[in-house]
Design a protein around this nucleic acid. Sequence first.
DNA 1: TACCGGTACCTAGCAACACCGAATAGTTGA
DNA 2: TCAACTATTCGGTGTTGCTAGGTACCGGTA
Lengths: 109, 109
Amino acid sequence: MGKQATEMLKGTLEGIVLAILSSRPAYGYEITAWLRGQGFSDIAEGTIYALLVRVEQRGLVDVEKVPSEKGPPRKVYSLNTQGREYLEEFWRTWSFLAERLEQLREGGK
Amino acid sequence: MGKQATEMLKGTLEGIVLAILSSRPAYGYEITAWLRGQGFSDIAEGTIYALLVRVEQRGLVDVEKVPSEKGPPRKVYSLNTQGREYLEEFWRTWSFLAERLEQLREGGK
DNA sequence: TACCGGTACCTAGCAACACCGAATAGTTGA
DNA sequence: TCAACTATTCGGTGTTGCTAGGTACCGGTA
């Protein structure tokens, strides 16, 4: 993945993380590892933590500290009601963008 | 369109503009008007001009100054070979992102 | 004991990008 | 003359992801 991805992730990465949290609670380290497994090979760890702090401050997620057997305690995040509404809005925006881009790709042949 | 769009446009707007230029040469004012007609209602005018300057400096487009009947001369941009390669790369990155997001949307039900 | 690797989180500084607001300049018509 | 439309430019702002570190807890190994 090149530099284009870095800029393209702005705005979408937040939605991606919230989408993950909508199906199950998770913590930062776990999310980073999962994303890398999905092909987001160069997602920086700090990026996810910073993002989680932001969404927490906006009140989109709830946090619970859970002890870990092998390391420091985990901060487990889960999507709350406000977060779900925000995610809905995200999907609407995404759909709009995706449709226009698909049209452009068709037309550009 | 809300605030999410602003962040989501980062990186994609460039691809959108290059995609437009891949089908026909165009100038800034024209592109802005076209985008607004397509539903990108709150694209700032200055944004497109700044973007065009960037892609020009990166050598992705060729520029030609063309006199206008009704106003100052237009700067008409057209995609060159390097720009087409860059656009290909953009589509690959976009496809990757779109696939992951579609998977997430499916899984999130 | 000392050390390394894996787990788990945090932070400061940076670069890129879209937005805002304003300015400039040419043309046409009231 | 003045307003409206066309067309481009620019400085400053806020948000975002990346870089490059650091802290801390644990188990295994030399």
